[in-house]
Amino acid sequence: MSEYFLCLILFCTGLYCILRKRNIIKIIVGLAIIEYSVNLFLILIGYRFKGRAPIFALGQEIPNMVDPLPQAVVLTTIVIGLAVIVVAVALSVRIYSKYKTFDITKIRRLRG
């Protein structure tokens, strides 16, 4: 049970970073944290108590195995998350060269 609470705390930390931090690098870190918390949650869903990896061998029976599907899903979401972070970091580099600041409250040319 405590794992789920830790996962929730991680999620809230990420959300706090995105909503409250002014530095855009910290916002991107918050995004990474929130993505990892959801990945962790997916892994927890697939876990069975004292479960084993679902790898079959000849003449062997595994009575209690973890669900492999969430693990496959998490591998994909990690790659997607990486792509998003790369885009965000590349954008922040270009933003810095245009605005000379990482402060999100000063990056405000669009209005209305």
Binding site: I24, V84, V87, A88, L91, S92, R94, I95, K98, Y99, I107, R108, R109, L110
Partner: peptide, 11 residues
């Protein structure tokens, strides 16, 4: 500059 800012928010 505006496009980068908009894109960051969108991201």
């Amino acid at each position: 500059a505006e496009a980068l800012e908009a894109s960051f928010r969108y991201t």
